[in-house]
């Protein structure tokens, strides 16, 4: 079996996307060791003919990326355009997606997920689904106990993929929580915002970079 994993993060190997894919692969490997793994990072040039080969040879392809301005990053769209000549050439291909974002709610990624389902159809591939996860931006700096659940869910997604060649619907549902912020969370957030607590993270980073005084700069407004 060929499993191709496409990391569409502009941050490449150091990305949050890579962490999530890593957990998915651990889960996959826990079930089976007899597969060929191909990994591609879209923030680096891909050798001519490599994408064609992967598209034709893969049994499963997972394309993962961070949400950029409500859709895929430009480099991922470029990759989709590179696939345009391959539509219908591998009807056995199972194509799944992972969309992660810094916003906590899944709702932000629902719109691009509709596009991805349509893209799989356009490519003539079998659509596995789109795993949506919000609140991922802090995963690299958060303590282990805070990220244990999300890592476990991606592990389960990978294990289920190896077992059944599909994304587990229950895992997809768990990953996408919260779909929207509940009234209580909104109340807490609004209260925190009034007290200035919600800006703490960015203010700390800005101060570390000696940029806090310029945090509201409008340098593009020149005429």
């Amino acid at each position: 079996m060929w499993l191709s994993v496409i990391n569409g993060s502009p941050r490449g190997k150091k990305s949050n996307t890579a962490i999530l894919l890593g957990e998915l692969l651990k889960g996959f490997c826990s079930v089976t060791g007899s597969f060929q793994l191909e990994e591609i990072y879209l923030n680096r040039p891909v050798k001519d003919g490599r994408l064609d080969q992967l598209f034709h040879e893969s049994d499963i392809m997972i394309i993962a990326f961070p949400l950029y301005t409500d859709a895929m990053p430009g480099i991922v769209k470029e990759f989709f355009e590179d696939l345009s000549g391959l539509c219908g050439t591998n009807p056995a291909l199972k194509l799944g997606f992972i969309v992660q974002s810094g916003f906590p709610e899944a709702i932000h990624s629902r719109f691009i997920a509709r596009y991805l389902e349509r893209l799989a159809s356009r490519l003539g591939a079998q659509y596995l689904g789109t795993a949506i996860r919000g609140g991922v931006e802090g995963i690299q700096v958060q303590p282990a106990w805070m990220t244990r659940r999300i890592r476990k869910l991606f592990w389960k997604l990978g294990a289920g993929l190896a077992l059944n060649s599909e994304f587990d619907d229950a895992v997809l549902l768990s990953l996408a929580q919260p779909e929207r912020l509940g009234a209580f969370v909104r109340f807490i957030y609004t209260t925190g915002a009034r007290l200035g607590l919600t800006d703490f993270y960015w203010n700390r980073i800005l101060r570390e970079n000696n940029a806090w005084q310029r945090r509201f700069d409008r340098s593009y407004m020149i005429s």
Binding site: T69, A71, S84, R118, L119
Partner: peptide
């Protein structure tokens, strides 16, 4: 192109952040 506006345009939209 492939059901959405171009990669070229998306790269500019990303840089509006």
């Amino acid at each position: 192109i492939m059901g959405f506006t171009s990669a070229l345009l998306k790269k500019v939209q990303d840089k509006m952040i």
